[in-house]
Each structure stands twice: as structure tokens, then as C-alpha cells.
Amino acid sequence: MSNTGRVELIHARRGEILTLVRHHGELPVVELSKLLGVSEVTVRSDLAALAQTGQVRRTRGGVRLPTPGHGESPLEQTQHTHTAAKRRIGREAAGLIQHGETVILDVGSTTTEVARALPLTLRNVTVVTNGLNIALELERLPNVRVIVTGGTLRPLQHSLVSPYALDVLRQVNADRLFLGCNGISAQGVTNANHEEAEIKRAMVAQSREVVVVADHSKLGHVSRAHVADASQVAILITSRGGAPLPITLSDALPDIRIV
């Protein structure tokens, strides 16, 4: 296996560890070893790396989620979690964009994959974003006009928030919004940061169609700040995970696409 393949395998395995810990709350190393089909030594190595970045907390003989209140992670960290799933979601979402459309692209690691998946063949498309890294990703597309909202920089996500970001968004009438989140449930879309949630709510208000892009680890979770009701979401694009799709979520959303 190539070095790239090994790195992707490690990232995928650590993503599965996070999913299992989120689902169970706390797990012993021996149980994770059985569930993942790898040695306890490998599991401990993965847990050490995840604990170093604050994604989990080690316990005697096991692991649990960190103390609530510290749930937001840097973009550089989240982009290495469920990487393959986010790429699939990004490709599916990018396929929805048509020539001549105006779209809003929210911040986040999954929406970044949407930007990366946009084809060079797109014509006369305008993308409005509050993500500095996303704007840079879109520079490669010669026929896509990129509008950056402006505002105050949040280095954690390379995102722009108020003041000023809201003023720009209120001038936009978008065909569709690709919305990231920290949780989506029957209660709706939620986010870990209140400043970003305010911007996301404005994006929802200015868009004809809301497409939520969220990997399976976000399903059924409720984070700190409300962004949108489930009734405001037209499409959810997500990935296959260990646990089945929550029934309440299936009932609440009209169009769920699992890739």
C-alpha cells in the first residue's frame, strides 16, 4: 500500500472511532479493537492522536468524549475526519449546480469538498462564500465569479462573521445554499458557534433551496446554536455510517441522499 493509501486508511479508522465514541459515549480499548478489527496497540495509537487534538479524552482502559463546551474543532482537524465520506458528499453536491446559477457556499470541511469538486466546465456561476479557504479553492475555475462576504475573521474555521458579513448576504438572492453544520436532527440544523450560526441563518433566508452537506457523524446530533428548522431543508446529502439513519430524521426531511 502507498503512503497516501496508509494515511487515508488511518484517517478513516480514526473517523470510525469518533463515530463509535459519539454513539456509545464511552468505550474500552478492547471493545474498539474488536469492532474495528485491529490490534489494541493500533487503537491506543489512534486514541493518543485523537486525544492530542482534543477530539476524545482517555480514560482508564478506554476513551470517552471530551467535556461538553469544547466541541468546536479547527478546520485543519475536521478535514482529516471522515475524509473519503466528505469527498463523496462534495461530488454529489457539486453535481446539483447548473450553469448560470448563484449559490452560497458555507464554511466547513465538507463544503470545502464541494468547492473542490466543482468542474471546470461550469459557466456563468456566481459563488458567495464567507470561507476564505473556499474562495482560494475556487480561484482555479475561470468561469466562476467568487464573492467573499467580508466581515470579522474567525481563524478557527477561516470564516468571516459579523459585522459586515450580514450586510453583504442581505443583498444576495441565491438559487441554492450548501450548508454545513455540527448537527442535524428532526429538530433542525445546529452549529457549535453562535457567531457562525447567525451567518448561516442569513444564508438560509436568502436562498431558494437549502442543501445540507453533513457526514454521518452529524446525524441525530443537536449542537449549541439553532440554524434552521428541518422544514427549511430541501435536501440532505450524507454518508453511510455504522448506525442506521435515525427514523425521526427520515420522517422530518423530504430528500435524503446517502453516498
Rank of each mutant, 00 (worst) to 15 (best):
I256V: 14
A234F: 06
L75R: 09
R140E: 00
Q98I: 04
L27Q: 10
N173C: 07
V222N: 10
I17T: 06
D255T: 02
S45D: 07
H221G: 07
I10L: 15
L253T: 04
G242E: 12
R224T: 08
R57K: 05
H11N: 15
T152N: 12
L96A: 02
R44F: 02
E92W: 07
I134N: 04
V7G: 02
I184Y: 00
L47F: 11
V38G: 08
R176V: 12
Q171N: 11
E196M: 03
V30N: 13
A85C: 12
G90S: 10
R87F: 04
I147V: 15
V107F: 06
E76N: 05
E137Y: 02
R14T: 08
A12M: 11
D175C: 06
D167T: 15
Q52M: 08
I97H: 00
I147L: 15
A84N: 11
R116C: 05
D229V: 04
P28I: 11
E40S: 15
L132I: 14
A192W: 05
E198A: 10
G180C: 09
S162F: 12
L179V: 07
V148M: 07
N130G: 03
H158S: 15
S39C: 12
R6V: 14
V211K: 04
H70K: 11
L153D: 06
A48K: 13
R87S: 07
R58Q: 09
Y164D: 13
S2C: 02
R224K: 10
T59V: 11
T112Q: 13
A243N: 04
V144I: 14
P155I: 15
R257Y: 03
Q206K: 13
G108P: 03
Q187V: 12
V204P: 12
E101H: 01
L96M: 09
E72C: 01
G71Q: 14
G242C: 10
G150M: 07
Q98T: 07
G71A: 14
V259G: 04
P163D: 03
V21W: 06
T53L: 14
R64K: 12
N193C: 01
E76Q: 08
H80R: 15
I89D: 01
N130A: 06
P254C: 11
C181N: 00
A93W: 01
L105C: 07
T81W: 14
T238Q: 08
S159P: 02
V148I: 14
I258F: 04
L47N: 10
N191T: 03
V213T: 09
A117H: 01
R201S: 09
K200Q: 14
G100A: 05
L236P: 12
L18F: 13
H216P: 04
R257E: 03
R140F: 00
G62F: 02
T67V: 14
H11V: 08
K86C: 10
A225G: 10
L166D: 09
V41A: 15
R140A: 08
A49P: 00
L36K: 09
V63H: 09
